[in-house]
Design a protein around this nucleic acid. Structure first.
Length: 597
RNA sequence: GAGCCCAUAGCUCAGUAGGUAGAGCAUCUGACUUUUAAUCAGAGGGUCGCAGGUUCGAUUCCUGCUGGGCUCACCA
């Protein structure tokens, strides 16, 4: 408790309540600064204590705050029956008045009503924002304690619980009421009776509590006539007064934009959303322990990098003032994780955000979570096995089976997974004889025939991959490892010993989407330098996503990086798969949107 | 970046072949002590996304803008 604070029970009114301080700071501009000055006269004034009125220059209103309220109905500013639009009065109760400052207040009747109730609590010697209750139980603990006991057993045993949660439903019967409380573990009904909690408490409850408020109840568990486990509250306390109403109980919050922008509301009213993010957390925790058990060390490498490397993507730029330099938000952690292989951490992984300054879609958010892991003395072949183990094990843990249904399609993660080469996939899905795919002229004509943008000097390998992505990738159901990527499109990848034009690399495709990308790592510093130089040439020719030269990374390789394999898995897309979510925004708590109008 | 679609009460949605709008839930008043979208009676609540244009008159028609969704392009 902050120094000088008074225990909530002893407060005469809400004056000392820090939460209330914040609340009224919102309404009353601080002395001398009038950012919302033009707005003040339209702001709510109910229950603003007198000292505040004087100190903050809120216009005082005539009559007691709760006096003429009802009488005012029907002559709200701007809605006078006579059609005359009066100047907004200092005591105006306009909800959505447009102030002359242009600021819009969207405090409507419902919000004003709830603020009035908060004041009602204060007038009765309480506070609408106490923090004086410890909570002993969760709704889940209560359910478990009740088990499958019969109503009779339950009442005999008198299991007393105390739970806290948000009221998500309320059914009122005059002298008794049912409320449904939601906490982090679930929902549970509470039954509040006048003869149990006392007349005064009960009347205040009725007058001041709404759906959306956070409350605490204590009492024995029982089962109602309709068979629902319920807390018979003999003590009750409002813990947080919500002054905004929740969406309606039946349809909930549907508007997609509001769901993303106000995820807090989405989480309150749409239980399935909570489950998606619980599962996301479980997936990440599971992967973390899967790798840790295999002796991988979790590390954190820079998100702000002087050179954005490790992937082909456009970076975000930011500015460090004290250093006087521009920095890039990372597009991948790869080059730093490999530095750690050089340093002797032979197995490392990182689960963290990458940032790519590119389009937004159901598959792309500008910041997204990537798992990358690197294992010394392993090859991409080893990582295929590891990936099979990881994802089939994950599916088994989540669903008890390796068979997962995604968007109506059934995917079986049971190993071994199909393996197909890039050229093989083009041959199979494009109906092209595979041997012709080594003919650069044929590749060029095919790409042009598909309407792909073909640069005059495009490498044959680039063309092959473009064709693959056009005709084959989205048709691979998978899970399938696509192998034998051309070296030209794999500038950080080790060359195949027998076929130097081929990279020892695979991508994991599930439902036509890339879930993982892995390869045996290039650790020949001179070859790596030549690959960077080639990338620079591409960049000079206008390829904005070509890699930059990273001299420090090359210096690290020059010290000797053990032979290794590394892999990246897009966590968001993995979570989409395992939560059957059609959009990446459904698995990111706060997806990137344009700023609100 | 392009195309198509959407924006009406706090929420979910109707609607106006151009004459400033309705329902359900929520809110308020009253009744109701085991309900399950509780019920019953009554009341209030809207610059119909924003800005122009056409018109006697625009929430409705037209144009632009803003925000969102989907598809395509780029990417993971």
């Amino acid at each position: 408790m902050p120094a000088g604070a008074v225990p909530a029970q002893e407060q005469g009114d809400g004056d000392e309540d820090p939460a209330f301080e914040a609340l009224r700071a919102r309404d009353a501009p601080a002395r001398g600064e009038g950012r919302r000055g033009a707005q003040v006269e339209e702001g709510y004034r109910l229950g603003v204590p007198d000292p505040l009125v004087r100190a903050r220059a809120v216009p005082a209103c005539e009559g007691p705050p709760d006096g003429p309220r009802d009488g005012e109905r029907g002559r709200r500013p701007g809605r006078r029956p006579d059609g005359i639009h009066p100047e907004v009065s200092p005591c105006g109760r306009s909800g959505r008045g447009q102030g002359r400052s242009g600021v819009t207040e969207d405090w409507n009747e419902l919000i004003r009503e709830r603020i009035r109730k908060a004041d009602e609590i204060r007038r009765n010697g309480g506070t609408p924002y106490p923090n004086d209750r410890k909570v002993g139980w969760t709704t889940e603990m209560a359910r478990r304690a009740a088990g499958d006991k019969s109503p009779e057993e339950l009442s005999r045993e008198e299991i007393r619980v105390d739970i806290a949660g948000r009221i998500v439903a309320s059914r009122n019967f005059g002298k008794a009421a049912f409320v449904v409380l939601a906490d982090r573990t679930g929902r549970l009904q509470a039954y509040i009776r006048k003869d149990k909690v006392g007349d005064r408490e009960y009347d205040l409850f009725l007058k001041t509590t709404d759906v959306g408020d956070i409350v605490w109840v204590e009492g024995p568990l029982f089962i109602t006539r309709t068979g629902e486990l319920t807390v018979q509250a003999d003590r009750y306390r409002l813990l947080t007064k919500a002054i905004r109403p929740l969406p309606e109980k039946w349809h909930g919050l549907v508007d997609v934009e509001t769901r993303y922008r106000q995820r807090y509301v989405d989480l309150i009213v749409n239980e399935k959303v909570k489950e998606v993010f619980r599962r996301r957390a479980r997936i990440i925790a599971w992967i973390r322990s899967f790798l840790t058990e295999r002796d991988f060390l979790e590390v954190e490498t820079p998100m702000m990098q002087p050179v954005a490397g490790g992937a082909a993507a456009k970076p975000f730029v930011t500015r460090h003032n004290a250093l006087g330099m521009d920095l890039f938000l990372r597009i991948a952690p790869e080059l730093y994780l490999k530095r750690l292989l050089v340093g002797g951490f032979e197995r490392v992984f990182e689960i963290n955000r990458n940032f790519r300054n590119e389009g937004i879609s159901t598959q792309h958010n500008p910041e997204f979570t990537m798992l990358e892991f690197y294992q010394a003395y392993a090859t991409h072949e080893d990582l295929m096995k590891l990936t099979e183990e990881m994802l089939s094990g994950l599916a088994l843990t989540l669903f008890g089976t390796t068979v997962v249904t995604v968007q109506g399609e059934t995917i079986d993660f049971a190993p071994p997974w199909e393996r197909i080469t890039v050229a093989g996939a083009v041959a199979r899905y494009g109906g092209v004889p595979e041997e012709r795919l080594s003919d650069p002229e044929f590749l060029r004509k095919t790409a042009e025939g598909l309407g792909l943008p073909v640069k005059g000097d495009a490498a044959p390998g680039r063309l092959l991959v473009d064709i693959f992505e056009e005709v084959a990738e989205r048709r691979i159901e998978g899970p399938a490892f696509v192998t034998e990527y051309p070296v030209e499109v794999s500038p950080l990848s080790r060359r195949n010993d027998a076929r130097p034009g081929i990279a020892d690399r695979f991508e994991l495709i599930v439902l036509g989407r890339e879930i993982a990308n892995a390869f045996s790592e290039l650790n020949d510093p001179l070859d790596q330098r030549r690959r960077f130089e080639e990338q620079l040439r591409l960049r000079e020719r206008g390829d904005e996503e070509a890699h930059y030269m990273d001299e420090d990374f090359l210096r690290a390789l020059e010290h000797g990086m053990p032979p290794a394999a590394g892999e990246g898995i897009g966590i968001d897309r993995l979570v989409m798969l395992f939560t059957d979510s059609p959009s990446i925004r459904d698995v990111i708590l706060f997806p990137q949107l344009r700023k609100e109008g």
